[in-house]
Structure formats: C-alpha cells, structure tokens
Design a protein around this nucleic acid. Structure first.
Length: 506
RNA sequence: GCCUCCUUAGCUCAGUUGGUUAGAGCGUCGGACUGUUAAUCCGCAGGUCCUAGGUUCGAGUCCUAGAGGGGGCGCCA
C-alpha cells in the first residue's frame, strides 16, 4: 500500500491508494476526487477514457468522505498543490458515506465541536494534529539529546501543589481523605531529579476551573523538566535553548502543515534572536509606559492600535455598504455568490473590529493604572509581548504573588528567583519556571505562610533534609505551545478531544 | 464569578417603526457540462423562528424567566 506522502517516489508508476474522499467535482466525462489518506492529499482524475462506463457512473455516485481504493498512474502536474496527480484506472468502493455534516461552507464553533470526531478529518485540523505530533517528538529529542531522563509523576495524588480550589477530587482511597487528579507533576519531578539528575515529565494535568475561554482546558498536557544543581540563570539558558529548538524543528519539519494553516512566518524569522530578559519591576515600568522598548512605548502603541482599528472599522463598513448596493443589481449566480461571501466575511471582520474597539480602551486603562506588586493580567501580558519580536523572559517576581516553593533572593528576600516566558505577537505566557527553595526552614515557613497542610508535604520537605541542592525547573503548557506555533485561534483545536467546563462529548 | 453580544432550513445568515402565505446562499437530491480546486446553468425538496409565560386585534420582531452558545475580564498553563 502506497501512502500519498510518498507519491514523489512513484512518478510515472502505477500505484494503489486507499483513503477517503475529501472533495469531489463531477463533469460529464471527467471527474475529480481529492483523496486523503491521513498522510496527505492528492487530486485524482477520473477520465472516461481510462475507466469503464460502469466505473465512471459509480464514481459520480461517490459522496464526500466515502472510503475508496484507487489504482492509477502517478503523474507530475505543477498545477496540483502536492505537485502530483493520480490518473485513475480502477475504482473500488469500500463504503459509500451518508451525507457528511461538515461541508465546505464555514461552520460555527459549537457545531464543529459537537462533530469533533468528524471535524478531525478536515485539512486544518489534520495539519494542527500533525504539528502536535511533531512538537511532541521535538520536545523528546531536545531533552533526550541532553541527557535528561523522561519520568512520570502520579496522576492521582494527595498533594495539592498550589491550593485545592481548582482540583478534581475523589474519596476513593480513604474515607474523609480526598485524592486529587494532578494539576502539576513538579513536586514529584523534584524528587525524581534528586535520584536521576536531570529529568522531565510529559503528562496530563487537570484543573477544575470553570473558565470557558480560548486559552483554557480542564484536561491538558504539560512538560516539566527539573534539574539538580541548576540555578535560575542556568534554568533561563535552558528554557531559551529549548524554545528556540522546538520552534525551529517544527518549522523545518512541518512546512506543508504550516502552509495549510496559512501561518505567517514572523515567529520563525525572529526566533533565532536572543530573548530579552527583564525583571518584574522593569516590566511594570514598560507596561505603565514609564520605560520604552526600542523606542516603543506601551501606551502609545496601544493608542495607535486603537486608531488603526477605528480606521479599519470605517473602511470595512463602507466596503460592506458598497458591496450590498452592488448585490441589489442583476448579475450571474457566480458573481452573486462571490459578493455574498465577501459581505459575510467582512461582517465577521467588522464584529471582531467592534469587539477590539470596545476592548482596547479597557486594556489601555489596565496598562496605565497597573498596580505595582500584582501579577500581570492578560491585557498586560499582551502589551508587553506586543513590543518584542521574540519571547521575552520576565524574572525576579514579588514573593507575595508566586508559589510557595520558589527560592528567595538571599540579598533581596521580597523577590523570588522565578521566570515567566511570554510569547510574542500578544500571545502571552507559555513557560513558568523557577529555582526551588532548597533551605528547609525557609521552605517550611513558606508552606505555613501559604496556609498549606504541612503533613502532606512531609515527603517533599525531606528533599531538603537529605542532600539538599540548588535545583530548578520549568513547566511548558503543551496545548498552549501548539496554539502558539500553529496560530490556532482556540486551544480547543490543539487537542483531538478537548475537555473543558461544558464539554465532555464527543 | 462578573460584563457584553447572540439563538430563524442540514450549515452560514437576512428579516425594516409589531401587520397577509418567513427569505437568500451553501449543502442534499434530479438533470446539463472534458481539467476542476468554496463560488457554471436549470429544477425539486427542506422551517414547532431555542423553551415557557406575558403584552397586543395581531409577535420571528416587544417584556419577563430559563436553557444553550460567542467575546472580554478574573483564575491560570
């Protein structure tokens, strides 16, 4: 059996392809079927000169997503997107599909999610899931090549790493004692690092947050490396190498997929540059417009964005009106369809622009009045990353807003040795990391200060009793990274079957 | 949890200050077409206007409640 992705090896040869009908167009004596087999897409030409009358008639009855086996010659044809087409000689039908619910016309998000099991077959979802696969392999390659041991944290745990409010719990193990689905494997990764040196986990995380947003799932995957004898600077060096490697590797290996997604190449063109490292306090100055970045001011940049949105709003409105006037006249059906779809598209853009025009002023206010000492909100992250071409690393955070296990600066104990990596183009946080507190007494005090139950952290504090060492690690949200690389507008597209508050099926 | 917008045919959407028999495109089905790539031509079918109340001579349109969905914020990865 030949895969579509390998067709270039079979030029001018006869092959048999097995797959599904992605699209089809029939004529009187010629028909076209775009066949997909999971490895790729190929246009197949069914010419009455090459097949029997019966087969041609059968071909005309083949519906979208029917499963078929085609035998024919592989012909080079520059007009086709893959460079090759199949001149069909024989058609075998495996199954004629019922009317497929997903057509060529655009669909709403809820309809698509309800048909996720079928939506996966569409070209963009195919491309995203292939990039997801490549990203996973690139991550493993990066760590494996550097002597890291892949390890697994338990998925069911008695430990709540950062509070219990957003955990899924069950009383299965002992009456009155909650077991939780893990929200992070970090604490266990730390223990494993003390045994193995450098480790990384790649496992599922669960958050019972009722957040229904384009960036949240209740079930997602996270990569959490943990390294013994690493301080924050070494951690940041590793993070930078890591991000640059995975982005570059995916970019090199997934050209076809990125093209199918119309992903612009801005990210990939700038990723080789050094990532700026700024402290929290410097970042606050930038957000509030009190410090400039390469001559760019956060407030004025947003005001310019708003002006641009408003200008575009006027232009779009005029264009819609103009097109609607045209539509009132007489014209051919094809022309009408074209104009109608243009209006639909413009109206959709208009909605988005109106949304932006409503929101940007709120974001500007949020920037101007940002209260020093607090954690960044989405608008603050957005404007900060808006000023850079590459990911930006923000380190040295106020102790009060970060997790209990992060190490204090010995000479500046109100700050901790933590880093957030914010992806450019307004994307926001993809990595959070820190050097861990390795002093037993300081750690215990921190656990108490956060009102966490000391008993369940007994084993964790043991790591500071038996050969405590400086160590660091970080966490990378896998779906967030897929979203970033693919440019997907919604995190729900980055995992085959997304789970979030309100969705358990399919 | 808060703010905001939406729910009309299988899908994406129109539907004017409340007024006869609710429209379009796509898709399906039937037919025409030898090179198509969402958008050639002709024709058929397809609707409890989200649900429950209310106002009115009359409600897809107005009011109230509920359900579902989108976007923003918060929480975060």
């Amino acid at each position: 059996m030949v895969q579509i992705s390998d067709l270039s090896q079979y030029e001018e040869q006869q092959v048999t392809l097995k797959g599904w009908v992605a699209t089809r167009r029939t004529g009187g004596k010629i028909a076209f079927i775009t066949l997909r087999d999971g490895s790729g897409y190929v246009e197949c030409v069914i010419d009455l000169q090459n097949v029997s009358e019966e087969e041609f008639e059968a071909a005309k009855r083949i519906t979208q997503e029917s499963s078929i086996i085609l035998t024919g010659m592989v012909i080079k044809n520059e007009r086709q997107s893959g460079g090759y087409e199949l001149q069909v000689k024989k058609i075998e039908v495996v199954h004629i599909a019922e009317e497929f619910p997903l057509g060529k016309k655009e669909h709403g998000p809820d309809f698509l999610l309800n048909h996720r099991h079928l939506w996966l077959r569409s070209k963009k979802q195919w491309a995203i899931l292939r990039i997801r696969n490549q990203l996973k392999m690139s991550i493993h390659h990066f760590f494996q090549d550097r002597g890291f041991i892949q390890t697994d944290s338990p998925i069911l745990t008695g430990n709540a790493a950062e509070g219990t409010s957003d955990l899924f719990g069950t009383e299965f193990y002992k009456e009155g004692v909650e077991a939780y689905l893990s929200q992070s494997g970090q604490l266990y990764a730390e223990a494993t690092a003390m045994a193995m040196g450098k480790v990384y986990t790649f496992g599922p995380c669960f958050r019972a947050e009722k957040s229904v947003t384009p960036r949240h799932l209740s079930e997602f995957w996270m990569i959490e490396p943990e390294m013994a004898f690493y301080d924050l600077d070494m951690d940041m060096d590793l993070i930078e190498d890591f991000i640059r490697f995975i982005i570059t590797d995916v970019f090199e290996k997934c050209q076809t997929e990125l093209k199918a997604l119309d992903r612009d190449t801005f990210l990939f063109e700038h990723i080789h540059k050094p990532f700026p490292r700024i402290t929290y306090e410097e970042a606050v100055d930038i957000i509030r417009g009190e410090r400039e970045v390469n001559g760019k001011n956060a407030i004025t940049v947003q005001e310019e964005d708003l002006a641009a949105v408003e200008a575009k709003l006027t232009v779009t409105k005029a264009e819609i009106e103009e097109t609607e006037v045209l539509l009132k006249g007489n014209m051919k059906k094809g022309k009408r369809n074209y104009l109608q779809s243009k209006v639909d598209k413009l109206k959709k853009e208009l909605k988005q622009l109106e949304e932006d025009a409503r929101n940007i002023p709120l974001w500007i206010e949020s920037s101007k009045n940002f209260p020093r000492g607090e954690d960044f909100g989405a608008p603050n992250e957005r404007v900060l990353t808006r000023l850079f071409d590459t990911p930006v690393m923000v380190y040295k955070w106020p102790r009060a807003i970060k997790a209990f296990y992060m190490k204090r600066y010995p000479d500046d104990p109100e700050y901790i040795k933590g880093v957030d990596v914010l992806a450019p183009e307004g994307f926001g946080e993809v990595v959070g990391g820190s050097e861990r507190e390795d002093d037993l007494e300081v750690l215990l005090a921190s656990i108490r200060a956060h009102n966490l139950p000391e008993e369940v952290f007994q084993w964790y504090t043991d790591l500071r009793r038996y050969g405590s060492v400086p160590h660091s690690g970080f966490g990378l949200g896998f779906e967030r990274t897929v979203m970033w690389i693919t440019g997907a507008k919604h995190i729900r597209q980055t995992i085959p079957f997304p789970r979030y508050y309100g969705r358990l099926f399919p």
